[in-house]
């Protein structure tokens, strides 16, 4: 089963995503983390908070900022995973090694990786971001990133069994 969880920043979507995968799978499961942490203090703090939130819930973390299908051979104990989040994955694929990869190639790579992962998993919960509802007066690169993420989200939603939007911590099933 594939579940997409969509929401804005600080909307409570991570919490809901964890609850969802935990209700689908009581035992071992993987947390596939796509954020490149580096030495950015805000990121380090964010990761710390998320790790604290999900400790004692049976997660093992796989760091996978690029090339999602490389996570599959690392999943020896369980076919259940929480992928967080697609917006970072799209950014990491698009802005790779100081180069900018085109929108089409980015979408193809991310969607392909997610499909392979979804085929492998018994249960896959995917978290993605709503970044689409503010001013759109952005530069071309940002707009191209937004378009790529929009297309990826739509493609994932199409292939998901259930889709939820989370707003102020409240989940609403939209598919």
């Amino acid at each position: 089963m594939v579940t997409l969880i969509y929401g804005g920043s600080a909307s409570g979507k991570s919490q809901f995503a964890e609850d969802t995968i935990c209700s689908l799978c009581k035992g071992n499961k993987y947390y596939i983390a796509t954020m490149k942490v580096g030495d950015d203090e805000e990121n380090i703090e964010r990761v710390k908070k998320h790790r604290e939130q999900r400790k004692n819930k049976g997660f093992e973390t796989i760091e996978c900022p690029n090339d999602l299908k490389s996570a599959i051979p690392q999943m020896s104990k369980s076919k259940n995973a929480l992928l967080e989040c697609v917006s970072n994955l799209v950014a990491n694929e698009m802005f790779f090694n100081g180069e900018i990869i085109g929108k089409e190639d980015t979408v193809e790579k991310v969607v392909g990786g997610i499909k392979e992962l979804a085929d492998f998993c018994d249960n896959l919960v995917i978290v993605s971001n709503n970044i689409f509802e503010s001013d759109s007066d952005y530069d071309d690169i940002t707009l191209s990133y937004m378009q790529a993420l929009g297309e990826v989200n739509a493609e994932i939603a199409k292939n998901s069994d259930e889709v939820y939007e989370v707003v102020v911590g409240i989940s609403m099933r939209i598919k």
Binding site: G8, E133, D135, M146
Partner: peptide, 15 residues
């Protein structure tokens, strides 16, 4: 207002 549904702001205070 719901204010979290946009691109991550550049400005640290905004974040």
């Amino acid at each position: 207002d719901e204010i979290g549904n946009g691109i991550v702001p550049m400005d640290p205070f905004e974040r």
